[in-house]
């Protein structure tokens, strides 16, 4: 049996689907894309390597994602009373590495996301997806979102980007 490097088209399609789930506010299905140990990380510095001993804007494990999911649909969440709308665009998708033994594949891309919640905010930066490719399926081990203005003063970031 030969193992092939994952096809860029397949990976890109996966990233599009992931972004679509965010645009549809379907956090349940979005969380299901992650492995049990999966994390969503938005560092506060561009070259930040440590999510634990250094502050981050987000560093969510799956329990935290579940809590956010329940919060999003709660009837009495003051900051989430109106619909959150977003539109993600992804480009420059590149496979940086692939380990066929573990199935771990690191993919980087550029993104722009417009989030509308009372006012419109543009987020931009790079994604790094650490994907686990096994038995034909793809799961997210970690999604790292580096905003170009990660160290700026931000208003509320109401949703996953």
């Amino acid at each position: 049996m030969t193992t092939q490097t994952p096809q860029i088209e397949k990976i890109t399609e996966f990233l599009y689907q992931e972004a679509d789930l965010l645009d549809q506010n379907d956090l349940g299905s979005w969380i299901d894309l992650y492995t049990d140990e999966g994390t969503y990380w938005m560092p506060v510095e561009r070259d930040q390597v440590d999510p634990l001993n250094h502050i981050s804007i987000f560093y969510d494990d799956k329990p935290m994602m579940q809590i956010r999911k329940h919060n999003l649909i709660h009837k009495r969440a003051p900051s989430k009373e109106i619909e959150i709308r977003s539109s993600h665009l992804i480009g420059n998708v590149k496979i940086k590495s692939y380990d066929e033994k573990t199935g771990l594949c690191t993919v980087t891309s550029n993104f722009q996301a417009i989030v509308y919640y009372g006012e419109q905010t543009l987020f931009a930066g790079t994604y790094q997806h650490d994907l686990l490719i096994k038995n034909g399926g793809i799961q997210i081990q970690q999604k790292k979102v580096v905003l170009i203005n990660c160290d700026a003063s931000h208003g509320t970031i109401i949703s996953y980007i």
Partner: peptide, 28 residues
């Protein structure tokens, strides 16, 4: 180090722009 890590967790959950707690305060 775990003490600092809990402090970081606290700040992310409560004081970050991504916080659900802080966002509801700010909405008020």
């Amino acid at each position: 180090d775990k003490m600092l890590q809990r402090t970081m967790l606290y700040s992310r959950l409560i004081n970050s722009p991504s916080s659900m707690v802080g966002a509801d305060d700010l909405e008020a």
